[in-house]
Structures are given as C-alpha cells and as structure tokens.
C-alpha cells in the first residue's frame, strides 16, 4: 500500500459555543479515505467522547456535514486527498451559522424551524378517492421542481450563506429552495399562503444572490436560482394584488 506508515495531521474542534479549541491528532493515512473516516478513527481510537453525527455514509442522509479546511462539506463523500492543503493538515470544525452542541455536532433546530416557517410541507388538493394526477416530466413547472428536489437537508448551504450570518431572521437557502419546489408542484394547494410565508420578514427578498449555497451544495443544486424564482413569482403576485 502506498500509504503504509504515513499519517495525516488533523486539527479537530473540541468544545461547544462558549469554549472551543482546535486539538491536534495524528491519523493513519489510508487509500480512498474520507473526512468522515478520519473523524470516526479519532473517535474509536483516541477520543471516545468525541461528538459528531453520521448515519448513511453514502451521501443520502445529510447528517455528517462539517467545515473542512474552512469550507462546508458532506464529510462522507469528501476524500481527504481532495481537501489536503500544502501543509498536509486537515482542519475539521462544526458547521457555521448554527449553535454548537459539542465538538462537531450542531443544533439544527433553527434550521428546520425555518423549513416549517417557509411552509415547506405539501398541502394536498385531492383525497385518496380521487384519480392519481398525471404530470408530464416535461412540463415547465415540473422541471423547475425536479431541479430542486434532491436536497438532503445537510445544512451546507445554510452554513455557507453570509446573509444567514448577518440576518438571523433569514429563512436560508434550503428552506426557500424547498418552498420553490412546492410552488412549482401543480398538485399543491398552498401557493399564495406559501408566497406570503417566504416574503415575510427574512424571506426570499433578503437573498443577495452571493451564491455560496450553489457553490457548496454537495448535490450540485442551485438554491440561488430557486430563490430568484420565488422573488419573481412573489413580486408578480404582489403587483397583481394576489397576496
């Protein structure tokens, strides 16, 4: 093995909001090693009380996001070789813009509360007794919705957003992207109600289109585009007096 005997220098954030510091560890280098592998190795071999989150390890559950060398990433799909800087050091910290519970585990309550605030739930217009509605995947609205539905709620976009950092009321890219997929869902019955929610205080109009969310989204979604769509639809609805 090419990495036999080699180690990686890791700086890991320990502590919570009020008191945290980077602590240094040496971790054996392995082939195809992910950042999550590194964190897990430290927890299993050096620091049994290290707190961090993960579940699926294959980029589906969205629970393992952390800040790696200053950038928010999904750690289970981020190879160490990709993020190593010149010093052969890797710095792993919790996500930005969220309170830290301990070490690498953040409190995501506010993040998910904002999904609820943005009315990120489907409002049905039919019952189980109705025929299943046929929707062509080629319809414009459906294509818009499809472009945003692969969100895994990892919080990377929220952590990368400078508007979230400066405006605690801002709903954030993930919640607004979710709202945009529902605005484009022809089966949904809550369009106006949802547009009112996403244009209330901290709504889509607060986005500065800096595109941090789009840059870092691990699923290569484009929340900035979704938010721009919401702005346009909400502005037209306001001018028409529908809201």
């Amino acid at each position: 093995m090419a990495n036999e005997g080699k180690t990686i220098k890791v700086l890991l954030s320990r502590g919570d909001n009020s008191n945290s510091a980077l602590k240094e560890y040496e971790v054996p280098a392995k082939e195809s090693q992910t950042v999550l592998d590194v964190v897990t190795w430290i927890q299993r071999n050096l620091e049994p009380d290290l707190s961090y989150r993960f579940a699926c390890r294959v980029g589906m559950c969205g629970s393992c996001a952390m800040t790696v060398n200053g950038k928010p990433r999904w750690t289970c799909r981020t190879h160490v070789s990709k993020v190593m800087d010149g010093d052969k050091t890797i710095t792993i910290e919790p996500l930005r813009n969220m309170p830290v519970i301990k070490d690498l585990a953040c409190d995501l309550n506010e993040f998910f509360e904002k999904w609820t605030k943005a009315k990120g739930h489907f409002i049905p217009t039919k019952t189980r007794d109705d025929q299943v509605q046929l929707i062509s995947p080629n319809e414009k609205a459906r294509r818009e919705a499809n472009a945003g539905i692969e969100c895994i709620n990892c919080g990377v976009c929220y952590a990368s957003c400078d508007v979230v950092e400066n405006d605690s009321s801002y709903l954030g890219p993930a919640a607004l992207n979710r709202a945009w997929t529902l605005v484009n869902d022809v089966r949904d019955g809550g369009k106006i109600e949802r547009l009112k929610a996403v244009t209330s205080e901290g709504g889509c109009q607060s986005c500065h289109s800096q595109q941090g969310c789009t840059t870092y989204c691990p699923n290569t979604l484009n929340p900035t585009r979704s938010i721009a769509g919401l702005k346009k639809v909400a502005a037209i609805a306001t001018l028409k007096g529908e809201m």
């Binding site: 244009t199 205080e201 909400a234 306001t238 001018l239």
Partner: peptide, 12 residues
C-alpha cells in the same frame, strides 16, 4: 428587514 414591496420598488 426588507419587505417584498421595498424589494419591488428597488427592482423597478
């Protein structure tokens, strides 16, 4: 702290 009406005014 930007309402949708102010947002529209700025765009127009």
């Amino acid at each position: 702290m930007l309402s949708i009406k102010l947002y529209i005014a700025q765009r127009l």
